[in-house]
Simulated scan of single mutants.
Amino acid sequence: MNNFFRKLALLAVAVFTIAGAAAQDADKILGVYKAVEEGKESKVEFTRQADGSYRGQIIWLKQPDNPDGTPKLDVKNPDASKRSVRADRVVVVDGVKYDAKKNVWNGGRVYDPTKGKDYKVEVSFEDARTLRVKGALLGFSRSVYWTKIE
């Protein structure tokens, strides 16, 4: 009987170790990334949400204001209630969850505020500091690459 409990304890330790490693891999996405697209520079921060999904939100824009000094807004958003959100606070990746088998975050959406459109998304690391954000719609896809800075 003692041997049974010893094996059970070892199994429990192994399960918690594996679960902890998977959570650590999933949290690898957390941090701040520099994004440069079409000459526009921004910083996006990934955070973990209460439901276990991850969200990427713009936290900084190189040029956050219009020429007249007013803040840029998310004016192309198809959801009229979000058009008053400052461009330097827009959520650009939402609802992604870590798939340990594929080593990617998927199942969510990526939003392109320059076009006012959102797409299915798959996020993965190209290397330790380069995040690949791949948006797809109707069989077409486009990837952008962000550099982890924090």
Rank of each mutant, 00 (worst) to 15 (best):
V85Q: 09
R6G: 06
S42F: 03
Y111T: 01
P78L: 06
Q24Y: 15
K43N: 10
K40P: 07
S124F: 03
V110Q: 03
D74W: 01
R86Q: 09
K82L: 13
G39L: 08
A26N: 07
T114H: 15
L131S: 01
K62S: 10
V85T: 14
R6S: 14
G31L: 07
G20Y: 04
Y145W: 08
V104Y: 05
G69A: 05
L137A: 13
T147L: 09
D27G: 07
V133T: 01
A22S: 14
K148H: 02
G39V: 09
T17R: 06
G135R: 02
K76D: 07
R6C: 08
T147Y: 11
P71F: 06
L30I: 14
T114F: 15
R48L: 07
Y111R: 03
W146H: 01
A23E: 15
T130S: 08
R89V: 05
A136W: 06
D79S: 05
Y54P: 00
A21C: 12
A87M: 10
A35Q: 13
E41V: 15
P78N: 07
K40T: 14
V85Y: 03
G116D: 00
A19E: 13
R48H: 09
E37K: 12
E122Y: 04
I59R: 00
K97S: 10
V32R: 09
I59W: 01
K82P: 05
V93E: 04
K62Q: 13
K120R: 11
R6A: 14
